[in-house]
Design a binder for these strands. Structure first.
Ligand code: FES
Ligand code: FES
Lengths: 145, 145
DNA sequence: AAATAAAAGGACAAAAATATCTTTTTTTAT
DNA sequence: ATAAAAAAAGATATTTTTGTCCTTTTATTT
């Protein structure tokens, strides 16, 4: 399971795709308020993302966080790996010593393929793609109204 | 994701199925040592399981923990629910506000069916069944040797 | 009945995760 | 240049989870 920090990170990046760009940057407090996330904690998390070039930031008046074109090529997995220890994906779901085919736990045959598919999805899904899906989704809901 | 406590619980119960019975009870320290789990922490966890009748215990000399026939009808889910807050299974994997079909997150269509299958498996898999599988597994490895 | 062994219970400690606050640095706007 | 605004950095606080320790209760064995 993901930590709160990386969930916040994902939610915030998703918010940035739709509400910011190089011209309209967003401050950490604005983002935190909009998403109802503890502001200083989010600020920390956004700093980590910036440090590892997952998102971009500019200091000073009118500064804030935004996504560059390059940033948008980052994947969900990149965000998660920036905050969490992704080694945990290798652990057995039931906490058995090792997770492998030789001595599978009772949910291994369910968990293992799912996990691999999930990781694959996380690794291939770029921020840009999510942004597009989100826009598409919103269009649909607009049309349905 | 399960807490360490409930993973310890599962591992310990599994150990009990194979190494104990009403005649041969096991002390919490023995179990902890065999499984390399912090002893006092496991003791606490085993107490919770006993309180909720998932496993059985007897105090005094030659006392310890064991599984009654009724205990063996408990499921993996019962063990988990005894220790963890299973409401967390309803949360969105990526931490979006709600998990539902209307506004699914990007991994919802992967996560949701898996989660349901997993919960179903956890709810139907009894301790007895696991014990049998384990025995079967061991027989196989014996044969293969 | 007494001694003992083990669970049960409760208080405490450490570590990790989450959350807050303060100061410094940098950039932009004036 | 100066002031202001915002990120960056770092120190501190709280909460939750994990882990330890000590005392009490209870059942068993002698
Ligand atoms: S062995 Fe348990 S998940 Fe693979
Ligand atoms: S909406 Fe994210 S898992 Fe269902």
């Amino acid at each position: 399971m993901l930590s709160k920090a990386s969930k916040y990170a994902i939610t915030a990046v998703l918010y940035l795709t739709n509400s910011s760009n190089k011209q309209h940057k967003l401050g950490s407090k604005q983002i935190a308020k909009a998403l109802d996330i503890p502001a200083p904690f989010l600020a920390k998390t956004l700093q980590e993302l910036t440090k590892k070039k997952i998102i971009s930031s500019v200091k000073g008046p009118n500064g804030g966080f935004y996504l560059s074109k390059e940033n948008e090529n980052n994947t969900l997995f990149d965000i998660i790996a920036c905050i969490d220890d992704v080694e945990k994906f290798n652990d057995c779901y039931l906490g058995q010593f090792e997770c492998n085919e030789d001595k599978p736990c009772v949910v291994h045959h369910l968990y293992f393929p799912f996990k691999n598919e999930l990781i694959n999805k996380l690794k291939t899904k770029t921020i840009l793609e999510m942004s597009n899906e989100y826009a598409h989704n919103n269009n649909l809901t607009q049309i349905l109204k």
